[in-house]
Design a binder for these strands. Structure first.
Lengths: 251, 251
DNA sequence: GTAGCCTTTTCCATTCAATGAGAATCGCGG
DNA sequence: CCGCGATTCTCATTGAATGGAAAAGGCTAC
């Protein structure tokens, strides 16, 4: 005995294996997968074989493993993310066609920003966000808006768990809580060059039934974007639309 | 012993449970889930609890179960469907902005049409297709194009497995194989009112390296749509663009 | 060629996690 | 209050999953 992780179930491993695809590589060898997921090699081998049989994983020509099509299908048939996406897309389109910049929708998950959808604008700046990708809360306008419009206990527990984030804030000594309050007061967040040096992020909350953000809607524009001021109203209007649509199709 | 389905592994059940969400209902009670997935109730209960713990499923306020956010996240980080979607979206946007009708992308899977992405056009006809939803091959232009541009053995095995589809074709006595050949010759498929009485579907193949369809791109327009003829070239151009993009980012 | 290194695959005795029947509990509607 | 279905929990049993080890395969460099 005395193996790396005794006492975890098939599910634990299943999830760790899928979680090993973190976006840095989109296909892995079985051995690499076993290492990343911290599963004994022989077990990983069997698990992968089973998962491939079910379409949860697939293997390409070189024997490399990657998430499978059936997994995608099962996950996209119905899920909170799908509902949100469904409700938001028309409004995101509106924003997109007016602002003509990357438009994205995200939620807060495990103290991180989880990107639900993004509409890219051709010929604009690069956009770091990937669908289903995660970004740090304190470096993105989406994240800061989500946090600012979260219940107090969520904010506090975030601050507790991430003292580093607070410390590494732009003006070193500024008061993070005050900043959040400011964002809530203004109703939007705008950051220059935090994700990418040449871009500005602007985001507004999609408010839920209790006045908290259930999502955030934002755009990424080039630094010094001319019609900056017109963007916020456009986002706010769209965000309200999304909130309304979500409201009429409750969970 | 002597239970309903002895000898299936955790994975078998896991997949059957997820598969129980087939789009007809987006949340189910545990009991209903157990019935649909053909899993003993007690086992289903435990399995659901575990899956919820991992975020593969989630439970709403009423205790109803539905696919979870983490599942969505894991599935959308990387997968063949994501690659295709990624490559196709800009071109679908182009089609969308020219034709101003529902635009959709699909692949062939298990003798069915699996919808990968759709861009809806507001104020146009209703669109039956759902993302990650399935549609019958022989009743959709997407399906017929996919089949027409598939290797011969795929066509034949489809015909073998679905004699009914052939029989129920529009003109009862027409030759299905001939029809496929015709589609391949023309390079596109167009059907009136097969999915919905008031709509026409038009689709073209996204060709892969061996001249077979790796996907199909199509639009849904109102019956008697005026600029019908201009749609096909637009689709073909976009489809080529998608094929090119896919080619430069191989599996 | 062959030595070194990493990966994939198979084997098999052990055991512990998964199992499912059954019963208790909850909750709604009549 | 009773009935009925859904949910939750218990527990003795067992075979499916386990993982160390070793064989088989693949690649590069010397």
């Amino acid at each position: 005995m005395a193996n790396s992780r005794s006492g975890d179930s098939v599910l634990d491993r299943l999830v760790r294996v899928l979680g090993a695809f973190d976006g840095t590589k989109d296909s892995l060898s079985i051995a690499a997968l076993a290492r990343r997921a911290d599963v004994p090699l022989a077990t990983a081998y069997r698990l992968v074989a089973d998962m491939v049989r079910h379409g949860l994983l697939s293997r390409d020509a070189n024997g490399q493993v990657r998430p499978g099509l059936r997994l995608w299908e099962l996950a996209n048939r119905s899920s909170p993310a799908v509902d949100l996406r469904q409700a938001a897309i028309p409004f995101m389109d509106d924003v997109q066609s007016v602002v003509r910049q990357h438009t994205q929708l995200a939620i807060l998950r495990d103290d991180e920003v989880l990107v639900i959808e993004r509409l890219s604008s051709r010929g604009s700046v690069v956009n770091q966000a990937q669908i289903a990708g995660r970004m740090p809360v304190h470096r993105t306008s989406l994240g800061m808006v989500l946090l600012a419009f979260s219940p107090n206990h969520v904010q506090e527990s975030y601050l507790n768990r991430h003292p580093d984030a607070v410390a590494s804030a732009d003006p070193v000594s500024f008061d993070f809580r005050r900043h959040l309050a400011q964002i809530r007061l203004r109703g939007y967040a705008a950051f220059d060059g935090r994700v990418d040096a040449d871009t500005t992020g602007i985001a507004v909350p999609v408010l839920g039934p209790h006045g908290n953000a259930q999502a955030a809607l934002g755009v990424v524009v080039p630094l010094g974007f001319e019609s900056f001021q017109s963007v916020v109203p456009a986002l706010m209007t769209a965000a309200r639309g999304i909130a309304r649509t979500m409201g009429s199709q409750p969970a």
